[in-house]
Design a protein around this nucleic acid. Sequence first.
RNA 1: AGGACUAUAGCUCAGUUGGUUAGAGCGCUGCCUUGACAUGGCAGAGGUCAGCAGUUCAAAUCUGCUUAGUCCUACCA
Length: 961
Amino acid sequence: MEKTYQPNAIERKHYDHWENQQYFQPTGQGAPYSIMIPPPNVTGTLHMGHAFQQTIMDALTRYHRMMGHDTLWQPGTDHAGIATQMVVERLLGAEGKTRHDLGRETFIDRVWEWKGQSGGTISQQMRRLGDSVDWTRERFTMDEGLSEAVREVFVRLYDEELLYRGKRLVNWDPKFHTAISDIEVENKEEQGSLWHFRYPLADGAKTADGKDYLVVATTRPETMLGDSAVAVHPEDERYTSLIGQFVDLPLVGRRIPIIADDYVDMDFGTGCVKITPAHDFNDYEVGKRHNALLINIFDKSAAVLAQAEAFSYAGQPLDDFDGSLPDGYGGLDRFDARKKIVADFDALGLLESIKDHTLMVPRGDRSHDIIEPWLTDQWYVASTKMAQPAIDAVKDGQIEFVPKMYENEYYHWMNNIQDWCISRQLWWGHQIPAWYDNDGNVYVARDEAEVRSKYSLADDVELTRDEDVLDTWFSSALWTFSTLGWPHDMETVMRFHPTDVLVTGFDIIFFWVARMIMMTMHFIKDDDGKPMIPFKKIYMTGLIRDENGQKMSKSKGNVIDPIDLIDGIDIDELVKKRTSGMMQPQLAAKIEKNTRKSFPEGFAESGTDALRFTLTSLASLSRDINFDVKRLEGYRNFCNKLWNAARLVQMNTFESIEDSDELGAPLDCGQHGGDVEYSLADRWIRSRLQTLIADVHKHYQQYRFDLMSQTLYSFIWDEYCSWYLELSKPVFWNEHSTEAQLRGTRQTVVHVLDQLLRLIHPIMPFITEEIWQSLKPVSGATGDSIMIAEFPKVDEAQTDPTAEADLEWVKEVITGVRNIRGEMNIAPGKPIPVLLANGDETDERRFRENESFLKQLAKLESLTWMNSGDPVPASSQALVGHLKVLVPMAGLIDVAAEKARINKDVEKTNKELARIEGKLTNEKFVSNAPDAVVQKEKEKADAMKTKLADLQSQIDQLNQL
RNA sequence: AGGACUAUAGCUCAGUUGGUUAGAGCGCUGCCUUGACAUGGCAGAGGUCAGCAGUUCAAAUCUGCUUAGUCCUACCA
């Protein structure tokens, strides 16, 4: 093996091998365990959040596979309607074309072409990440099978009246010319103005204080063209006399009623509200109650119409409505119209005032354009009717959120759920299976032929298919069962349903998680006809942010491609990557500056395993995770540590060949039987290993990957490498070691490493495979790959509390000597004599049994046991309980320095003792606290008192010099 | 406006049901190229656990308030 760990040299070959051997596929043996991947956008690339979640999913998958489960990790991608169409339209834009120039069919061909081009990126990235997904089952939401599931669900929901079409106000994106659902709207606070307009009263009416006009306030003056009422509060005395009267809408000349409605807040502004039912969700409700006209004034781009149009609340056009609008507005963009309206009011002397005002502005999460409430025909899922079982499933514990706090968020949304607008005016997506005849009647079925037979339509009835497509999330909502072959392959569906855990971000609870629960429970039933849940647990990961806590986004230029961390990237390349293909090229300079400042050297190559370990270590239950490249470096070093530990193990378990790095024949590690004798260190590490194994299992159960990685890290580094491997050297190097002793330690060194590799394999698949393979001749492991090897289980027979206590003592003695060396500036390599004094029988036994360990690890010239009464020279000392570990000062140690060192210890101990005695003299503590706690404090106090006495006698002795 | 979450070492974060001398990684200081590893070893410095009050024998941990930040929902037109 190389002296340092070189990730790129080992990663790819193992992945190819695993995939070729079909290890990623379910075996058909054992209890099923399944995870559905949250499908990434097929035309996108994976970012740190994906890498993070996929690492967790892969760790879970590999863990369960090694535990003998029939494990399926289902991969796939999503067609991402708007996002993908947007990208392709931009590509067309570069050629100076629009999608309309191409026509629907050609355009969709172009999208497929683009998908083919970019679609491979994600699977390449996933392979580099080591994801053990079953590639033979890979699915795409626009595949024929999944499309069929979509049609099936649509038709069934429609027939059950859980899906309907209606003319309603929707969130309209004037940039993409499509409706979007309410959760695709982001409300952000922005600075705006509040305009106060005078609306003259009709028929000579007057207000209570004698004015001939009402004052209304608005943040959107342009909508006044669609006003159909002015509302006041029914109990507002200023206006009661005017209720039922009219105002003359300025500019338009429309005569509109003054209505009374509770919705109005008397204390805000003037207490008069203009009502524009076709352009505001609240006004729609008010208007509906009072049957005020629904007057639409905008076209699909939110430019003013030449003629306004009016509708009934049932959606019928009102033909006798006079839609005249003032000259000069037709075709004007909404914001130009706003300026003109204000100017015109001003000119008429009807502009009362303009005030600064902060308001919440709705913007599309894709287009970032301001969303317009707009009256259109759309398809809806009656979510309100489907929500209850989904709420109950969480309430009664069938589905559990990890962490628990997200359940409240889920309930809150589900309890206030709105019907889901699922139609999108896009070309890329699942076209809605609905047909219309020339009279506008709607027919829903799987295809046109079925429409005709289902609705008994003659062949000559002309039918046209609905042009719209479905929201991407509609197909994603079916993901857990559509990917398994529903509605045909019910055997597979039932085998892996419900899936075990969904790993995803909290930001898509509503978009995806909640809808999956509703759809799955509606369509998938168990043998008793009881609704089945899609997954038992929902593990919500935090959001990966950059090192400053900023959300990673292309426009901020702070995204990190996980592959760049794996392979490394130089700074120029990184800057180029971050500043190319930007929506706002003017930000390039700033991004370049920040990038160069944050990563002057770019990223070093760290390898997949180090990245995965880092991500795992960040997987605490917190909401936000700031990714710091420094952490990655630390874990890359950890990989190197593991690598070199393996080298040491190999050097001691294989014959060495002179002048060569190649390994010779395997040595006798007990893999073929023979007597073994375990050293204290052997018994200790075997015992400690059992605790580690138990902890790892526990952390998997509790989804505490951060604790798990920390536990593994500190065991491997601080126990296995720093202590155990050092303690194995005295055995290997001692020419008097017996065959049984050598065999025992060789076997332990290999066995523990083998177990560690298995324990950590789900997180670091590549390095563990590489090392595991190299150890096979000495570990006795069979099987082709570590990924299908058995995961370690606790072996109670190996726990050995005596060995743990004895070795703890050994460590303390060694640390004591090192301590003196360190603080007295004695060179680490210089052999020194050490005396052990004031010890009891246990100390003496431990000393006798471990003399060679102690001498070797503390680099001692001699180690002498002092009986009581033996004369002890002036020494620097460390205490291990009562036992004094003494380094004679002669020629080595400065008296003043030693005194200072002891005084520091005295001070610290005194302080602590005072605290404990304070507790113990407190009557209430002694009488109220549990006996065990009081006892513990007493023991601590006693120990400190003797320690202080020892330290004092040491000072006395030094003073006599 | 309502709700949720967060505040622990210079930085990024752990800290289970109240009882630890409050931990880790990175960074920092000193010494070390010892026969796995300088991507290393040994030793060390560094914290009033955001603030205030309370409950308790005992609070980083439980409760209330305050401050700062993040997010969600709803909005007053």
